[in-house]
Design a protein around this nucleic acid. Structure first.
Length: 323
DNA sequence: TACCAGGTAAAAA
DNA sequence: TTTTTACATGGT
């Protein structure tokens, strides 16, 4: 098979590539899901020899443009790469998610309406597995996202498979079997806390043992799925919701305990800087079953520097835009 | 210098 | 059962 393959993908319905992929470009230290403002890159495939690079770009302007996918490998693309690449990219960019019912609801909500109007076609991006989503969430527990991405990046360089292309190394997210064999001491050296090290190794062992059943987690009612994941040490409600939302695309998961969510809901829906979990959950109740999706749109507005409809009460301007 | 970062588990009350 | 506290470290 060739070293390179190009495909033009047409997601059903509107899709805004850059606004969606921007979520992957949040931290400069990110080593697995790379987005530079133009191209999304991600190593996928099995093992060192079967690895290939997925690249994706907008195939034009606007929400109706296709997505241009390119697959690359140093020697030759592994058998089945075309299908696997298309499948992986479609999952990560949530091609299967139908935004129409959410948008219909959002247009009736005076807080969401202007944001959805501007960003319609934004999809909440996903990781390649619940395992990846859980470990990614654990690394950012209680620390700023940059530091979380930094230690995750070191972890990835140590335990992830990699491929070399055009003088660059690209890393796949470490496989559970690899991380399951890591020693807490090794992770400590990469600036993981003792706890985080234990959590990550524990979740990796569970995944390696097949105890994270994605099909089941997809089918289960959200609360039951959260409960099941929360049985893993180091996985509280927030991490479980991240796992379901970012791993499986369960957009009804609303992470009300999330500091960022509290800020963004407070900002755009309550006209304040910060609100408590209970309060933001009450606000989000009217977005059910698309709470997580609403959050994705609020974050997009925040990242783009969209001002709230009403000026904030107390402590007026603190720069809120990112990037 | 404190205090906060897109939390969690375990101890203390 | 509910409420603190330790955890690690970088940025402001």
């Amino acid at each position: 098979m060739a070293r390179e393959l190009r495909r033009l993908l047409r997601p059903p319905g509107p899709f805004r590539f850059h606004e969606s992929a921007a979520r992957f470009g949040m931290a400069r230290e990110e080593r697995v899901n790379l987005y530079d403002g133009r191209t999304f890159r991600r190593a996928a495939g099995e093992g060192a020899g079967g690895l290939f690079l997925i690249e994706a770009e907008a195939g034009g302007e606007g929400a109706e443009a296709p997505v241009a996918m390119t697959l690359r490998a140093p020697e030759s693309l592994p058998r089945g790469a075309a299908r696997a690449g298309e499948r992986a990219l479609g999952h990560m960019l949530a091609f299967d998610l139908d935004l129409a019912p959410f948008c219909a609801m959002a247009r009736e909500d005076p807080r969401l309406a202007p944001i959805v109007e501007r960003f319609e076609g934004l999809k909440p991006v996903r990781y390649l597995s619940v395992f990846e989503a859980l470990v990614t969430a654990i690394t950012t527990q209680q620390v700023n996202v940059g530091f979380g991405a930094a230690i995750r990046g070191r972890m990835t360089e140590r335990w992830g498979d990699s491929l070399r292309l055009g003088g660059e190394s690209y890393f796949a997210f470490p496989r559970p079997e690899a991380l399951a064999r890591a020693k807490p001491r090794e992770l400590r050296r990469l600036q993981f806390s003792e706890r985080k090290a234990e959590y990550v190794i524990g979740v990796a062992r569970a995944a390696a043992e097949g105890e994270i059943d994605e099909d089941l987690l997809r089918r289960l009612p959200l609360e039951e799925a959260v409960e099941r994941l929360s049985a893993l040490r180091g996985v509280g409600r927030w991490t479980a919701e991240q796992g379901l939302f970012r791993g499986l695309g369960r957009v009804e998961a609303f992470p009300g305990g999330d500091l960022g969510v509290q800020k963004v809901v407070a900002r755009y829906c309550l006209g304040r800087e910060r609100a408590e979990e209970e309060r933001v959950r009450r606000v989000a109740a009217r977005w059910a079953p698309w709470g997580g999706l609403a959050v994705a749109y609020l974050f997009a507005a925040w990242r783009a520097g969209v001002p709230p409809a009403r000026p904030l009460r107390k402590r007026p301007s603190r720069s809120a835009s990112r990037e």
